[in-house]
């Protein structure tokens, strides 16, 4: 009881209990209510009291509406750091189910990456030099899939026609997917040998 906070708590609790008893007494015995007189008749005091309690209630309201009492429960008990798998960027391009139009720079990067992968896979699987692999790429003999062969073949500069550009944009993902499958098949055949 030596703690000042405890003393204040007990005084407040006692005051509350006395108020409750007084209120109940007024309810059950109306003559007591008649004996009790409202101490102030000044309406300004009443309005001021109302304004003060209304402001306090208004300030408390957001804390009730935006309750954060469950904050501790949101801590995940097994927080394995979220790390993506290797190839997530390429996965976003190759494994989409809906039609995707990529910006030219991104298409250029994806095509260049698949071209390098194809060359390196040919070098590894056939044990040849990089130049030989480039020749295979140029003549398209590395795969039976004409779409994949055409996708990674070094091509002359585009003629810039609108139709060609539109086709390139629309069919890019499908062609990239065919190429990825062809390169993976090349590596799988080597692994089986």
């Amino acid at each position: 009881m030596s703690n000042p906070r405890s003393i204040i708590r007990w005084i407040s609790a006692a005051g509350g209990i006395l108020s409750l008893c007084a209120g109940l007494a007024v309810l059950v015995a109306p003559p007591i209510g008649g004996a009790l007189h409202w101490p102030w008749d000044d309406e300004i005091l009443l309005v001021a009291f109302f304004v003060v309690v209304f402001v306090i209630a208004g300030l408390l309201l957001p804390f009730v509406l935006l309750d954060d009492s469950d904050r501790a429960d949101r801590t995940p008990p097994e927080p394995i750091p979220s790390t993506p798998p290797p190839g997530r960027g390429l996965e976003h391009v190759l494994d989409r189910r809906w039609l995707l139009s990529l910006p030219p720079a991104r298409r250029h990067r994806v095509r260049g990456g698949l071209r390098r992968t194809t060359i390196r896979t040919i070098v590894r699987t056939e044990g040849c030099a990089t130049e030989t692999a480039r020749d295979h790429l140029a003549d398209g003999t590395w795969t039976d899939d004409p779409v994949a062969a055409a996708f990674v073949r070094p091509e002359p500069e585009s003629d810039g026609s609108l139709l060609r550009s539109l086709r390139e944009r629309l069919y890019f993902t499908r062609r990239a997917r065919r190429t990825a499958r062809a390169v993976l098949m090349l590596a799988a055949e080597d692994a089986r040998r």
Partner: peptide, 23 residues
């Protein structure tokens, strides 16, 4: 080895790593 084979994109990433090991 932390590459996955759950999709085409991750399988290509695995193939690229295999190529680097070969090189």
């Amino acid at each position: 080895a932390v590459t996955a084979t759950r999709s085409l994109g991750t399988a290509v990433a695995g193939l690229r790593r295999d190529n680097r090991l070969g090189a």
